[in-house]
Simulated assay, not measured.
Amino acid sequence: MMKKTLLINALIVTCGLGITASSFAHGGDVKQEDKQLKYFKNAGKMPVKTQLEQGVNAYFDDVVGSGDPQAPLSCGLFRIDKGNPLVYTYDYDDIKYVISGSILFNDGKQTVEGKKGDVLFFPKGAKITFSTKSAGLAWACGQRKLF
């Protein structure tokens, strides 16, 4: 299961520096007063380096998020490579769009192999096991603040 302490430590470190991981790596937080279009050319080719759990080849990096505290929205890239599965329980609604490769999603009742072009919805409270036969990349948008 994703170690929340790792996420909390990462948040403390990045907040202490006055930046978010996503603003450092990619596009960052879009403030409500900012009415300009944000463009991320070839976003699917951005590096995805932040490991979600030690010993699991699953990575996630935020690209952009809204600054609206009433309706937060954060989007980024999720990559998983062959190896140990990632088990994650969502505390927010999330959607993934598979960009390349394939990703196996299991909710304890069914296993779905998401392939390029597929969209999956994970409601708040869902416990999902992510794995792959080789590798997969997905665009993820969740109703949460930036990591």
Rank of each mutant, 00 (worst) to 15 (best):
V13K: 07
K109E: 14
L37K: 09
D62P: 14
L11F: 00
A10W: 00
L120Y: 11
Y90R: 03
I128W: 07
G27F: 00
G76Y: 06
L17I: 02
G114A: 15
K31R: 13
T14H: 08
V112G: 03
Q70F: 05
G44Q: 11
K116W: 02
A58I: 03
E33N: 11
G101I: 03
N84G: 01
K116L: 05
Y59A: 07
F78Y: 14
D29T: 11
T129V: 15
A126M: 14
N42C: 08
K115I: 05
G101P: 11
L7P: 00
A71Q: 13
G76R: 08
S66E: 06
K45Q: 14
L86I: 05
K96E: 04
S23L: 01
K82S: 08
G27Q: 10
L37C: 12
G117R: 06
N106F: 06
L6K: 02
F121P: 04
D62S: 13
N42T: 10
L6W: 00
F122N: 13
P72Q: 06
G108Q: 13
G65F: 01
G101K: 06
P72G: 05
P69S: 11
K82H: 07
D61F: 03
C15M: 04
I19F: 09
F122G: 05
A25H: 07
L73W: 01
R79G: 01
Y92H: 15
L11W: 00
S102P: 02
K38I: 05
L104K: 15
Y39T: 14
N106G: 08
P123I: 11
K124R: 15
A25W: 04
K124D: 12
R79E: 04
D34K: 02
Y88D: 08
G18A: 02
N106Q: 12
K82I: 04
A10K: 03
Y92N: 12
F121C: 13
G27P: 00
F24S: 09
D93W: 08
E53H: 08
L73M: 14
Y59M: 09
D93A: 09
L17A: 12
G83Y: 04
F60P: 06
G65W: 01
V87D: 15
N57A: 11
G76E: 06
V64C: 11
T111M: 15
K133E: 13
S74T: 14
G65P: 01
L86R: 07
F130Q: 05
T20V: 00
L17S: 02
I99M: 15
E33G: 00
Y59C: 08
G101M: 07
I8L: 07
Y92M: 10
G55E: 11
T20M: 01
T5D: 13
I19V: 14
I12W: 02
